[in-house]
């Protein structure tokens, strides 16, 4: 009956685009930043995803799992961009930070270095691995949820995650920007 009423009179309760996406904007930007590694690219990515969602407003309004739908769109757009910009380094080199004299190292410097070290490590992963680590190990999504977002079997994601973690652990230990390693040198 509701469907008939909806067909005859339109669904007045249907949410506007802003009402649907606004609650997810912070999350979209956060994940976009973790994907891309810098604010400008993250904003561009979110803007492109919003445009894509806007074009598919009807589908978005009908989506049963809005959050998963939006995160899938974000992931797909990121992978597309990654393919197009593969040759471009996603973040700046750490060389400048390595020039800070150790005597001036403060807790703030350490936090900044850790932040940049993580970005540098993530930038060494491919788009799929980066998305997996970001979503699973930082944002706490389960592999089952990620299988829905990334449209891949859980088993594939599990082995990809294992490889990505192994690579990151090596990178984190190797990087000379690690304060403790530099003290030891």
């Amino acid at each position: 009956m509701n469907k008939v009423v909806s067909l005859l009179f339109g669904n007045n309760k249907q949410q506007s685009f802003e009402q649907i996406v606004e609650p997810y904007l912070n999350l979209m930007f956060k994940v976009a930043y973790q994907y891309t590694g810098n604010t400008e690219d993250a904003e561009d990515l979110v803007q492109e995803v919003l445009a894509e969602l806007f074009k598919n407003l009807t589908k978005l309004q009908q989506a049963e799992k809005t959050k998963a739908w939006i995160m899938r769109c974000l992931y797909n757009k990121f992978v597309d961009q990654y393919r197009q910009q593969k040759s471009r380094p996603l973040i700046d080199s750490l060389d400048d930070e390595q020039q800070i004299p150790l005597t001036q190292a403060t807790p703030e410097h350490e936090l900044l270095l850790t932040h940049q070290q993580v970005l540098a490590g993530l930038s060494q992963l491919n788009s799929n691995q980066r998305a997996l680590v970001t979503m699973h190990d930082i944002n706490g999504y389960t592999l089952v949820e990620l299988a829905e977002i990334m449209q891949k079997p859980v088993g594939t994601l599990k082995s990809d995650l294992h490889r990505a973690r192994a690579k990151l652990k090596i990178l984190f230990n190797l990087q000379p920007s690690d304060i403790q390693s530099r003290h030891c040198m």
Partner: peptide
Amino acid sequence: AYLTKLAGLQTPELSADKKQQMLNKLNTNK
């Protein structure tokens, strides 16, 4: 140690102005 390192990734906040700007841009394109 790996998870602690990852937790050190700081994510900037998206300001309310920026959010509005993004949504307005869509309306402009519309």
